[in-house]
Design a protein around this nucleic acid. Sequence first.
DNA 1: CTACAATTGTGAAAACTTACACGAATCAAC
DNA 2: GTTGATTCGTGTAAGTTTTCACAATTGTAG
Lengths: 206, 206
Amino acid sequence: MIEEIPDIVISRLPIYLRELTRLAEEEGKLTTSSHELGKHLGISSAQIRKDLSHFGEFGKQGTGYHINYLVQQLRQILHLTREWNVAVIGAGYLGHALTHYKAFLDQGFHITAIFDNDPAKIGEQLDDIVVQDMADLEKTITELNIKMAILVVPANVAQEITDRLVDAGVRAILSYAPIYLKVPPDIQVSYSDPVVQMQRMTYYLA
Amino acid sequence: MIEEIPDIVISRLPIYLRELTRLAEEEGKLTTSSHELGKHLGISSAQIRKDLSHFGEFGKQGTGYHINYLVQQLRQILHLTREWNVAVIGAGYLGHALTHYKAFLDQGFHITAIFDNDPAKIGEQLDDIVVQDMADLEKTITELNIKMAILVVPANVAQEITDRLVDAGVRAILSYAPIYLKVPPDIQVSYSDPVVQMQRMTYYLA
DNA sequence: CTACAATTGTGAAAACTTACACGAATCAAC
DNA sequence: GTTGATTCGTGTAAGTTTTCACAATTGTAG
Ligand SMILES: NC(=O)c1ccc[n+]([C@@H]2O[C@H](COP(=O)([O-])OP(=O)(O)OC[C@H]3O[C@@H](n4cnc5c(N)ncnc54)[C@H](O)[C@@H]3O)[C@@H](O)[C@H]2O)c1
Ligand SMILES: NC(=O)c1ccc[n+]([C@@H]2O[C@H](COP(=O)([O-])OP(=O)(O)OC[C@H]3O[C@@H](n4cnc5c(N)ncnc54)[C@H](O)[C@@H]3O)[C@@H](O)[C@H]2O)c1
């Protein structure tokens, strides 16, 4: 009775959520259909219906989906009805950009700690928090019950810091370091490497 | 005789390239095997061999792959043997971080133009280039033969700027704006949205 | 009340992707 | 030379994901 839901399905849910929110807020829509949603996202309507059907029956034949209701359901599925404390590791260019990024807070991700090992950066005020010494990493992560981290340190220290994060109780890491991270199987990792993305695209540029 | 190579294969090639380069530079290796490469990347050796076999026979039984040779081949396949001029649109936090990011230059991506529409930012020196007015977008893109752009503007202007980029001749866009972009079918788009990535991971955090 | 258009949820088919497993090649050791 | 350990490239099987297509339901218009 335990249905294992494919990760590829899970990874589309935040996209649906994002577009549904936009449809409601910016276009003032109250309902939508799988066809309309798909057209806005370049995804087939059948795919959207199939994806959602893994979790329940959220729509009505003839009518479509009530946006607010579906948003609420998706947020529940993705565990977004609570707030998440997040640590940023690395107070460099990218660490600054991410810490200032308002969309995190809007979606319930609170960046409650930033760490660096550069004495020149430790103590720096960044928005409403202060850059902490890496020496305090484990202590702060435990105290603030931080389960998610964003890794924005150089590649050559990314693995060792990952190990420390995992040992300290972090369960999900979004890494911008251009290196594959080895973690235990129950730890989530997500990567972002613009160079890799650019290199994929150049293939198609004759 | 025209073999269509799956995009999912293409998207792994930059990852192989990245790790091969690392193996050569940091571990001083001259050769490697599909098994070793796979172990470093969490990918099966069969997958790596199958992927590479789409393009030719680059390895030797019993020995594996000569790293330098394979790197050279991958760079050719991905059209990385030439240099690419890149425009950054939006001189905000993220635009600054990306423009300073040295890895682009290392890989042959030259950020040769940055644009913004904020008078306070136009004229600002950013590394060795100057932030230009959006009014000059089409002219500069044409003159510098720019085919790739990185989009780091607010979501509500992302589509209209995309349309201008495409009209000006840009063929590939890496977008950080949290919105799906409508483009003609021959235009490449790649997205990066940390909120979406975080929301995927929270699903797995009970 | 009926006819019609819109739309869902879903079983089955099709398409795509990954994993398996093996012949053939290579090299080192003896 | 022969043996044994490696490793590739690939045909085939297995597994995953997407698409198709349709019965069932809903709302609207006459
Ligand atoms: N800048 C970009 O646009 C960009 C884009 C994608 C990925 N990246 C990657 O993200 C990471 C950070 O990039 P950045 O541009 O912010 O670099 P950066 O050099 O500006 O910042 C890195 C920060 O990490 C800190 N640091 C170094 N070693 C540390 C350690 N052992 N413990 C704690 N902190 C440490 C440094 O003091 C610095 O503040 C790099 O891996 C980079 O490859 C950067
Ligand atoms: N900051 C982050 O860490 C982060 C991460 C992921 C995605 N994003 C997304 O990337 C984009 C940029 O983020 P940011 O934090 O750099 O924002 P920002 O506000 O710092 O920068 C946006 C820049 O775009 C410029 N701009 C606005 N309208 C413009 C127009 N019509 N033409 C040209 N330029 C225009 C602004 O003047 C500003 O300089 C946003 O879409 C954001 O959602 C940001």
